[in-house]
Simulated scan of single mutants.
Amino acid sequence: MALFSRRKKTADPSTVEEDAAVADAPVEDAPAEEQAEDAVPSVGISVQAFRGVGADAGPEVAAPVDEPAAPDQEEPVVAPPRPRREPTINVVEDEKPRLPLASALPPEDTHTIEGLKDNVLLREALAEIVEGASNEELLGVMRQSMQGHLYLRVHGDAGEQIGAGQALSVAVIREDEKSFLLAFSSGAALRAAVDAEEDPAATSAMAQPVGLIYQQVIDGGFTGIIIDNASAPHRVVFPTELLQQALDQGDSEMTIKGLVSAPRQSDTAARIGEVLAKKKVWVAVSDGSTGAPVGIAEAHTADGKRFLQVFSHPLEVVALGRDDRPMPFEPEQLAKVLSSHSELAGVIVDSAGPSIAVERDALAPVMVLAVDLED
């Protein structure tokens, strides 16, 4: 549990104890933040931008094509992460906005305040947001928010409130009939919110999984959630309807995304293989309208291996900016494709980054499903 307390501007920050993830602590309809800038930030995302991202079902599609590349085309390879675009004043009119991408390898654990582990992927995606951000860029923040945890700011000592069986008094912002839960991607963002107040009350920080916090916003009747409210312009507002759609279209526990975005362990690929045998994923489908081959997208590595591209959420497909259509793919469908195409070396998960290649030996739990289908 992390505790902040400042009585006056010149006081030293209090010590920060180790943060604790409290999964089931009740949250009360908390008092509003007492700040001069209580108005809801304008950097919000249109719910309409999310509609149509993922279909509930799709037609039968061709498996990855076996044809070699045409002579005048380069053999496709898994490209290194694209450099981040620095914001510019003059933008070419037909330039398509890109969602924030990330390196293939997950970030290392980082603490901008000792004791509070940052959600680095979300923090870095927010760092790219500027005034006038496009819906595509904001969807990129949503994509990177769907893993790890967020911090809630609790008025008073969260540990004492939990110990006494009280509902946690978390920070919210109210505007007329609207109410927004406040959440933070990092210790630095939470500290910025505390420092923005003239006379802040004692504050503690509580970490919870992102999916659980989004569900609390939905179940609690909030209008939405504001992430890093005091870090303008690097903050976002997600309406509750958007959170509901995001959770409906993906795994509410965000299991695959969590494994791919966490520091690599020796058994990471094997654990992902086990999840792929149980959880729905998404594939990128081309209908040929843009000139790309009809079928499911695959990737070739520099050494000639072929991998099927799968995604933990439809937003991961959108992030690539290729005009492919996300389509849900059940474990049995994945098993059928892999068993029918022995030339596929495995799957690449979330190629917009962080990403991981999972080869056939780690996909044994999936391949068992193919045997069951034949019986």
Score class of each variant (00 low, 15 high):
3 L>S: 13
6 R>D: 09
9 K>T: 09
11 A>F: 09
13 P>M: 07
27 V>A: 00
28 E>F: 06
37 E>V: 11
37 E>Q: 13
43 V>A: 12
50 F>V: 13
53 V>D: 12
63 A>W: 01
64 P>A: 11
65 V>C: 11
75 E>I: 08
79 A>K: 07
82 R>M: 11
90 N>L: 15
97 P>R: 06
99 L>C: 05
103 S>W: 01
107 P>D: 11
109 D>T: 13
118 D>L: 01
118 D>M: 01
121 L>I: 02
124 E>W: 00
126 L>R: 01
131 E>C: 07
135 N>R: 02
135 N>V: 03
141 V>C: 01
142 M>S: 13
152 L>K: 04
152 L>A: 00
153 R>M: 15
157 D>G: 03
160 E>D: 15
163 G>I: 05
170 V>Y: 05
171 A>M: 13
179 S>E: 14
180 F>A: 08
185 S>C: 06
201 A>E: 15
203 T>G: 10
207 A>D: 10
207 A>W: 05
208 Q>I: 14
208 Q>S: 12
217 V>R: 04
220 G>P: 00
221 G>S: 07
223 T>V: 05
226 I>N: 04
229 N>Y: 12
230 A>V: 03
231 S>D: 14
238 F>W: 10
246 A>V: 13
260 V>A: 06
262 A>V: 01
271 R>V: 09
276 L>G: 00
276 L>R: 04
278 K>C: 04
284 A>P: 02
286 S>I: 10
288 G>V: 12
295 G>H: 00
300 H>S: 12
300 H>C: 10
301 T>Q: 11
310 V>N: 02
312 S>Q: 07
312 S>T: 11
315 L>M: 10
317 V>D: 02
319 A>N: 00
320 L>D: 07
322 R>S: 12
326 P>K: 06
330 E>H: 09
337 V>I: 15
343 E>Y: 09
344 L>K: 03
345 A>V: 01
353 G>I: 09
356 I>W: 06
356 I>S: 06
356 I>E: 12
364 A>C: 02
368 V>F: 06
374 E>R: 13
375 D>W: 01
